[in-house]
Simulated scan of single mutants.
Amino acid sequence: MKVQPRPSVGVLVFVAYLAVFYGVWIATGIEYKNVGDSASTLLKWYVAPLAAGTVMLVIAATALGWWRAALVEVRKAPRWTLITPALMLLLGLVSLTQKDYSDTTSRMWLYLLVGSIGVGFCEELATRGLLLVGLRGTLSERQVWLWSSLLFGLMHLPNWAFGGGPGAVGQVGLAFLSGTTFYLLRRGTGMLLFAMVLHGFWDCAAFVDSGGAIVAFLNIPVGIASVVIALRLTKLDRDEPTLAPYAVAQQPVAA
């Protein structure tokens, strides 16, 4: 690693990503409730800010030398921790079967898919990737899970100011629960990639057209179950140093 992981560094990268993402929204005059109205709104308010965020995060991960630590999980969890991610995937599939796509054009589908890939990559790399690595510099694994999931939830609060209204508060809680499910997926599979894929798929399933509200509501108990599993898992982790495997793996070999 080029920079020793510390919570302050992880939080700084997280805040920088938010500044870039929301900066694009401000510059383009975001109308939050109309993001999915047309191909042009999807391109301007969905794809564009995520493209800018991708560039920023790639530069940050490269400069810090945290790519491997961010993408590969050395503290793999038992397979039973994957129960709730599997249920979330199932709910997403069910949601897709309940929607009317008659008003969704081919170009809208293209931007939805590109944007959803961007959401999965950016938000996972920013939170359960680089932020998680930074937190692991000094915190216990339970604190790492709690703070990374809480900050993931809070990153949705500015939606209130951009037109989302008080409903953004509910988004914070829902995102915390979903973030915990994505955390379990990282731990259970040993790779951040699977969390990126599920995250992008879920956003696409929730974003496209209308309908599927009941399925989204059913994800709440799934998220609560994820919290219970995370509490159990992090109790098994105890307070062992969480960064040690990365630090050893990244030590330069003396000539």
Rank of each mutant, 00 (worst) to 15 (best):
L42F: 13
S226L: 01
I117F: 13
A195G: 06
L174F: 06
K76D: 02
L132H: 15
T127A: 13
L57Q: 02
L131Y: 00
A27W: 09
L91E: 00
R6W: 01
V74P: 15
G118T: 01
C204W: 11
W67M: 07
L89F: 14
Q143I: 05
F201T: 01
S102L: 05
S149L: 09
S116A: 11
L135S: 06
V11N: 11
V58F: 05
V144L: 03
L154M: 06
A52W: 01
D100Q: 09
G179M: 12
V197S: 03
G92Y: 01
L64M: 10
D239K: 14
A205M: 04
G137D: 09
S95D: 12
L177Y: 00
A60C: 13
D237F: 15
E73T: 11
G212L: 09
K2L: 03
W45P: 02
T181H: 03
Y111T: 04
V248P: 03
R142S: 14
V13N: 11
G188C: 03
G137S: 08
A168M: 06
H156F: 10
G179W: 08
R75V: 08
T28K: 13
I229E: 09
Q250C: 12
G167M: 10
A244C: 02
G29F: 05
S116N: 08
F194Y: 11
R75D: 15
T189N: 11
Q171C: 05
R75T: 13
M1G: 07
V208N: 02
